[in-house]
Structures are given as structure tokens and as C-alpha cells.
Write a protein that binds this DNA or RNA. Structure first.
Lengths: 193, 193
DNA sequence: ACATTTTTGTAGTAATCAATACAAAATAAA
DNA sequence: TTTATTTTGTATTGATTACTACAAAAATGT
């Protein structure tokens, strides 16, 4: 291949952009913010991301979806998948303040974009539904093999978990305090006993 | 009083502005959007709201806080306050699609403003904490008088309810379907038995 | 060395942003 | 009727928005 070589890696650009979007959302993030974070000029930017700001945001969501897929692979490979999920929630009580305040990029996007950009909102909803479906599958299995005693339908319990996730990402902004959050998580998980 | 009379009522302006902010959030709502909705010119607008767009948004939040205060008055006057709260949650399963998609102005604001405008975010967090405190008081009382058997600390159960509220406002955007939401609400409320 | 291809950096675009300036309009008090 | 006061509508501000045009720079292949 010939031509002037790129001085950045696309993946690294994406991660820096994702961080800004995660904090400020789509609308409040300006192109200037993004270019400063990525440390590239607008020439390179539009050369790399032909779809502009919206494509970049969409890619940030998809990158988050990829992170979920990696987690799902661990869950699927586990002999105690429900335990893996519970451990994930418990691990939230060890996060730092910045992480608490950022919340969840996907849930943030659903909230921000419903009446702003339908396609981006739908993209985010799809990811949440994928997570929910994984919860449902794991709970169904745990109910069959007796790991879980609660006989409420897996669908409703899975929805309970994703509702908890979305709610928790507001709660942790109200109380970015791991002691408080730990107690909250334990109570909420006890429903899945 | 002398001078040219106003042709609008401030309260009505506020309600129209609140509706736009509720749908699109603070940043994505332009002054043009607001003036179109209020049907006034920028002259009248800045004459009425000296603090501009931000004051208007703050007033919209405070108006929402006022709506909560009215609900709280009903709760405080009731002999079965926990039942009033549960009924409120059950009533959410009878809302229309638009209402589901709008979610909660206060929760939306916490999500949007954390890294955009600290003072507006704090204002919204304060309202959520007020609601939470009301939940805690009511639960404490219900535990004392035996209405509620669950002995988990009222603080954690109150936090459970506000977490549910915030999460539910995402869930209802994923599934603006009253049959689904009704089943979800019943399961979540059963924790408070 | 030279031609070709691609990226980079910069200058500039039109559109929109929130907010102002200010004169005309519309009232009440004197 | 005149004067004082306030609101309204419009024109305009400077800043910022996302995005583009394009020449210089930097590489490879011949």
C-alpha cells in the first residue's frame, strides 16, 4: 500500500471519543471536544469517519456492545453463569467515583436520544435487550438446575435485572459511595435467590 | 401598575417549555424550539426569564418538584400511605406511549447533566433524594404498624424504590407496552410486602 | 529520481446557537 | 392629552456548530 501513512490507530481514536460521549452524551459533545481528545485534525477525522459525528457515536455504542459480548462469552463458558452475573453487580461496589458518575453509555443514550435521534436510540435499546435476553437465559437455566429457588418467570426476573441496571446508574450518581451501593446491590440480588 | 400588559401567563409558558425540555433534554432543545412552543418572541422571553435558557430549565425542574410536593401531601394525609405509593406505581401501567417515552424529567436531567452542568444536575439529584426520603418515611411507618412484613431497613427499601423508578423510566422506553409493564411493576412491588 | 496515492493541517463554509439592542406599541397615571 | 412605564417584535450580535475544500506533506512503486 502506498500513500502517506496514518499516524493513529482507529481503535484508539474510538476509545478516546467514546470516553467523551460517555461523559457528555451526543448533543453536548462538540466536534472540537472530540478532535481535542483524539488529537487529530478535522481532515483526518472526516477521512476516517465518513459519516461524521453520528457515525462516531454509533461506533462508540457498537464498541460498548462488543464489551458486553466479551462478558457474555465468559458467562456462557461458566458452569455457574448466574454467579458470574451476580459477581459483576457486586464488583460495581468497588468502582471509583468517576465510573459511578459516568453511568452506562447505553442507558444514557436511550434517555438522551428518544426524541432526538430515533436510530441511535433504537441501536441502544437493541443492546439493552441483548443484555436482558442473556439474563433471561441464565435465570431460566438456574431455575431448571435448582440453583435458583425463586419461581417467578425468567422473563420478568431478567427484566428486573436490566431495570435494576438502568436504575442503579442513576442511584450511583446520587450516591457515589461504595458502602451505600454495596448494601443496595446485595438487597437487590437477594431477589434472585 | 402602568405599562404595556403581558399577553401570556408565565405559568402557561413554563408548562409549554417544560414539555419540550422533558422530551429533548436541556442541550438538544434550542431557544427557537422553546419560543415556538411558547409562541412568544425573544424580547418577551428574556424580559420574563432574565436568566435565559438555564433559568427556564431550572424553573421546569422546580415545577416538577412542585408536582411531587402535591403527591406527597396526598401521601402524608393518607392513613395507608404505602398503598398510595403502590397505587401510583400501578397507575404507570395505564399510561400512554408518549408518557412512557418521555420518562422522568428529573432522572433524565441527572443522566444528561452530570458532566454538562453541575448545578442543574445537583438540583435534580436533590429532588430525587426528597422523593426517596418520602419513601423511607412511609416504609418505616408501615414496618412499625405491621402493614409491611419485610424487615429490611427502610433506608435500603426506599432506595430500592427510587432505583426502581429510575430504571423503570428506561424499561418503559424499551417496552412501551402496558401488559409487560404491569407484570414488571407487580413483581417489583411484591418486594415491599 | 519521478509518478502516484493517501493523509494531514489549515483555512473557510453556511447554518445555527443563545443572547441583545432598541424602537414601536400599548397601557396606566397625572 | 400628555407623560411615564412596560411589553413586544424585529434586526442583529458574536460565538459556536458540523462539515468541506484543498494544497502541502509523506509515504510507496516504478
Amino acid at each position: 500500500m502506498r500513500g502517506r501513512p496514518t499516524i493513529f490507530k482507529e481503535q484508539e481514536l474510538l476509545e478516546k471519543a467514546q470516553h467523551i460521549f460517555w461523559e457528555k452524551g451526543y448533543t453536548a459533545t462538540s466536534l472540537e471536544d472530540l478532535l481535542n481528545a483524539m488529537k487529530i485534525g478535522s481532515g483526518s477525522f472526516y477521512n476516517t469517519f465518513k459519516g461524521g459525528k453520528k457515525e462516531l457515536f454509533s461506533r462508540a455504542i457498537q464498541q460498548r456492545r462488543e464489551a458486553f459480548a466479551e462478558f457474555k462469552a465468559i458467562v456462557d463458558a461458566s458452569t455457574a453463569p448466574l454467579q458470574v452475573i451476580k459477581d459483576f453487580y457486586r464488583s460495581l461496589a468497588h468502582a471509583d467515583k468517576q465510573t459511578h458518575l459516568q453511568g452506562c453509555l447505553i442507558a444514557n443514550t436511550v434517555t438522551e436520544m428518544t426524541f432526538v435521534d430515533q436510530s441511535l436510540e433504537e441501536e441502544a435499546v437493541r443492546v439493552l435487550k441483548e443484555v436482558e435476553q442473556m439474563y433471561i437465559n441464565v435465570i431460566e437455566k438456574a431455575q431448571r438446575d435448582g440453583t435458583m429457588k425463586n419461581k417467578t418467570s425468567a422473563e420478568i426476573l431478567g427484566r428486573y435485572l436490566i431495570t435494576f441496571w438502568c436504575g442503579f446508574n442513576v442511584t450511583r450518581r446520587m450516591y457515589p459511595d461504595n458502602a451505600i451501593l454495596k448494601a443496595q446491590i446485595e438487597m437487590q440480588l437477594s431477589v434472585l435467590s
